[in-house]
Amino acid sequence: MLKQRIITVLWLLPLVIGAIFFLPTEYFAWVLIPVFMIGAKEWGSFIDPNCTATQWTFTVTVSLILVALNFFVPVESLWLKGQLHPIYFAIITIGLFWWIVSTVLVFSFPKSGSVWKDSHMLKSMFGQLTLIPCFVSLITLKSISANVDPYFGASLVFLVMLVVWAADTGAYFAGRSLGKHKLMPNVSPNKTLEGLGGGLAATMAVVIGVMYYSPEQELGLVIAVTLITAVASAFGDLSESMFKRAANIKDSGKILPGHGGVLDRMDSLTAALPVFTFIYLAFWI
Rank of each mutant, 00 (worst) to 15 (best):
K3H: 07
K3R: 10
L13D: 01
I17V: 15
G18F: 07
T25Y: 09
T25R: 15
Y27G: 04
V35R: 08
M37F: 11
M37W: 05
G39F: 01
K41P: 03
K41H: 11
E42D: 01
E42S: 02
G44F: 02
G44E: 06
Q55F: 02
F58A: 03
T59V: 13
V60H: 08
S63M: 10
S63D: 13
L64P: 12
V67G: 15
F71N: 14
P74C: 05
L78M: 14
L78N: 01
W79R: 00
W79Q: 00
H85D: 15
H85Q: 11
P86T: 01
I87W: 13
I87V: 15
T93P: 04
I94W: 13
L96N: 13
I100P: 00
I100V: 15
I100G: 07
V101S: 09
V104I: 15
L105Q: 03
F107Q: 10
P110L: 12
K111H: 13
K111F: 07
K111Q: 13
S114Y: 03
S114D: 08
K117N: 02
K117A: 04
S119R: 04
L122Y: 03
S124V: 03
Q128G: 13
L129N: 02
L131W: 07
C134E: 05
F135I: 06
S137C: 09
S137G: 14
I139N: 12
V148H: 14
P150L: 02
P150C: 04
A154C: 07
V163A: 03
A167Y: 05
F173I: 02
A174K: 12
G175N: 05
R176L: 12
L178D: 08
K180D: 01
K180E: 04
H181M: 04
L183R: 06
L183W: 08
M184F: 14
M184K: 11
P185Y: 01
N186Q: 09
G195F: 06
G195V: 03
L196V: 14
G199K: 07
L200N: 03
L200Y: 10
A201F: 10
V210R: 08
V210G: 09
Y212W: 15
Y213N: 12
P215L: 09
E216G: 10
Q217K: 08
E218L: 06
E218C: 06
E218R: 11
E218M: 08
L221G: 00
I223K: 05
V225N: 00
T226E: 03
A232W: 13
S233L: 09
F235K: 00
N248E: 08
G253F: 09
I255A: 08
P257I: 01
P257T: 05
H259F: 07
G260D: 06
G260P: 04
G261S: 09
V262N: 02
V262T: 15
D267I: 11
D267M: 07
A272H: 14
V275C: 04
F276E: 02
I279V: 10
I279A: 06
